[in-house]
């Protein structure tokens, strides 16, 4: 049975990837990290960022909001500490980067180009200084950001799209035209929750991002839309809790999938999803996962 897939120049032994910000070497005691297709590291910026004030988390029906605010110790710390710790676990690592200026973005990509990361995921959900919106909400800025990063590195570049747009296809296309090797979608939905007794927001940052099972059907539709729009591989993300969820994404056109929030609920979920996919393939008598990608029957 062949569960391997290719995303750009990255060869994944299976399509299951841990999503940025939801996984870390700390899980090594609880799950066999080596068996994952890959891990996307927490988003880094050139310089350290302290992140948002607490509370940074709140639970919502079947889901959660977070407003971490990209807390990270910066590029150098990633290269010196985080990356070696992952590589020791023998798992392919995809770095995730974010920046407010094109200069910073180029610098990040250039320096990562010389490291052992397999690829770079571009987290576009960061403020765009020029237009005042997010890069991920401006097709031109998306195109430009991808192009800059592609210029600075030979590594596989994945553009991570935000769902906070009217038509995801426009953004998938912009990333493809900018030269992205793949797109991953989706990041979290802008959202908030309120304590009505105190009439105060439940997040220190007032607003945050919704993740988990509630976003899955919307994410699936966005993957399907993107699949019909672009030719580059798509990585499906959003509310994946089981192998069944993962298969829905693959059937709708995802070459690989990422698991985020579910890691918190069950740290072994990624390995269980890999097992589930294998069992599904056996049951369906399908020997190559590639045959299932985008295999949705719509007639």
């Amino acid at each position: 049975m062949n569960t391997s897939v290719k995303v750009g120049r990255i060869r994944l032994k299976n399509p299951v990837i841990a999503a940025s910000g939801t996984f870390g070497v700390e899980y090594n005691e609880l799950v066999d990290i080596e068996s994952l297709g890959a891990v996307v590291a927490k988003t880094i910026t050139l310089n350290a960022r302290e992140g948002n004030p607490p509370p940074r988390l709140v639970e919502t029906p079947a889901g959660m909001l977070n407003s971490i605010g990209l807390e990270n110790a910066g590029l150098q710390d990633f290269i010196n500490k985080k990356l070696p710790a992952y590589l020791k676990l023998k798992v392919p690592v995809i770095a995730s980067i974010s920046a407010e200026t094109a200069g910073e973005l180029m610098e990040l990509a250039k320096r990562l180009d010389k490291t052992a990361v397999e690829g770079i995921e571009l987290n576009l959900s960061c403020p765009n200084i020029r237009s005042g919106t997010l890069i991920s909400q401006d097709p031109k800025a998306t195109y430009e950001a991808v192009r800059q990063v592609k210029k600075a590195t030979e590594k596989t570049v994945i553009a991570k799209l935000s769902p906070n747009v009217t038509d995801i296809r426009v953004f998938a296309k912009a990333a493809e035209e900018g030269g992205a090797d793949a797109v991953s979608l989706i990041n979290t939905f802008f959202a908030m929750a309120v304590d009505i007794e105190k009439r105060r927001p439940l997040l220190g940052n007032i607003t945050g991002g919704l993740s988990g099972p509630p976003i899955k059907p919307i994410a699936l539709k966005m993957v399907w839309d993107a699949f019909n729009e672009v030719d580059i591989p798509i990585i499906g993300i959003g509310g994946i809790m089981t192998y069944k969820d993962a298969m829905e994404f693959i059937i709708c056109g995802a070459t690989a999938i990422q698991v985020g929030t579910a890691n918190f609920i069950n740290p072994q979920v990624t390995v269980e999803i890999i097992d589930g996919i294998r069992q599904y393939m056996t049951r369906k008598n399908i020997n190559s996962l590639k045959k299932l990608i985008g295999s949705l029957e719509v007639r």
Binding site: T22, Y27, K42, G51, R56, L57, N263
Partner: peptide, 16 residues
């Protein structure tokens, strides 16, 4: 105490 998700230090959700 703080709200928690992962409980192991990966989500950065429980700062003081």
């Amino acid at each position: 105490e703080e709200y928690m998700a992962c409980g192991v230090g990966v989500c950065l959700g429980c700062p003081i």
